[in-house]
Computed example of a mutant assay.
Amino acid sequence: MSKPPGRPYAEVIGDPIAQSKSPVIHGFWIDQLGLHADYRACHVSPAELEDYLTQRRGDAQWRGCNVTMPHKQAIIPLLDRLDPLASRVGAVNTVVRGDNGSLKGYNTDVGGFLEPLRDRLKEPHLYRMARILGTGGAARAIVTGLAGEGFTLVLAGRDPAKARTLLDELAPGGDHHTPRLDHFAAPTDFDFDDREGLLDLVVNASPLGMAGQEPLAFDLSHAPPGAIVYDIVTSPARTPLLEGAEAAGFGTIDGLSMLIGQAAEAFQKFFGVAPPRDHDAALRERLLA
Rank of each mutant, 00 (worst) to 15 (best):
residue 1 M to R: 03
residue 2 S to C: 01
residue 5 P to T: 11
residue 6 G to R: 14
residue 6 G to I: 14
residue 9 Y to C: 08
residue 9 Y to H: 05
residue 13 I to H: 09
residue 18 A to R: 01
residue 21 K to N: 11
residue 25 I to Y: 01
residue 26 H to N: 12
residue 34 G to H: 01
residue 41 A to M: 10
residue 43 H to Q: 04
residue 43 H to S: 03
residue 45 S to L: 08
residue 52 Y to S: 14
residue 54 T to D: 11
residue 54 T to V: 10
residue 55 Q to I: 02
residue 56 R to Y: 09
residue 58 G to Y: 03
residue 60 A to F: 06
residue 62 W to A: 15
residue 63 R to G: 04
residue 65 C to D: 01
residue 66 N to C: 11
residue 67 V to F: 03
residue 78 L to F: 04
residue 78 L to K: 12
residue 80 D to C: 00
residue 81 R to K: 13
residue 81 R to F: 11
residue 82 L to R: 07
residue 84 P to G: 02
residue 86 A to M: 02
residue 86 A to D: 11
residue 88 R to D: 11
residue 94 T to N: 14
residue 96 V to I: 15
residue 97 R to Q: 08
residue 105 G to A: 15
residue 108 T to W: 10
residue 110 V to L: 05
residue 116 P to G: 13
residue 120 R to D: 14
residue 121 L to M: 09
residue 127 Y to I: 00
residue 127 Y to L: 09
residue 135 T to L: 05
residue 140 R to A: 15
residue 143 V to P: 12
residue 151 F to Q: 06
residue 156 A to E: 01
residue 158 R to S: 14
residue 159 D to C: 01
residue 160 P to G: 04
residue 161 A to Q: 00
residue 163 A to L: 06
residue 168 D to R: 05
residue 170 L to W: 05
residue 176 H to S: 10
residue 178 T to G: 03
residue 180 R to N: 09
residue 183 H to V: 13
residue 185 A to C: 02
residue 187 P to W: 09
residue 189 D to N: 04
residue 192 F to D: 12
residue 194 D to F: 00
residue 195 R to I: 01
residue 197 G to H: 07
residue 201 L to S: 04
residue 204 N to E: 06
residue 206 S to L: 06
residue 206 S to P: 12
residue 210 M to G: 06
residue 212 G to C: 09
residue 214 E to C: 01
residue 215 P to Q: 02
residue 218 F to T: 00
residue 219 D to R: 03
residue 220 L to I: 01
residue 227 A to R: 03
residue 228 I to F: 11
residue 232 I to L: 11
residue 233 V to E: 15
residue 235 S to A: 15
residue 237 A to F: 01
residue 239 T to I: 05
residue 239 T to V: 07
residue 242 L to S: 12
residue 246 E to T: 13
residue 248 A to Q: 07
residue 250 F to N: 05
residue 252 T to Y: 00
residue 259 L to C: 06
residue 267 F to S: 06
residue 268 Q to R: 11
residue 268 Q to G: 06
residue 269 K to R: 15
residue 271 F to Q: 13
residue 273 V to C: 12
residue 274 A to I: 09
residue 276 P to N: 03
residue 284 R to V: 15
residue 284 R to T: 15
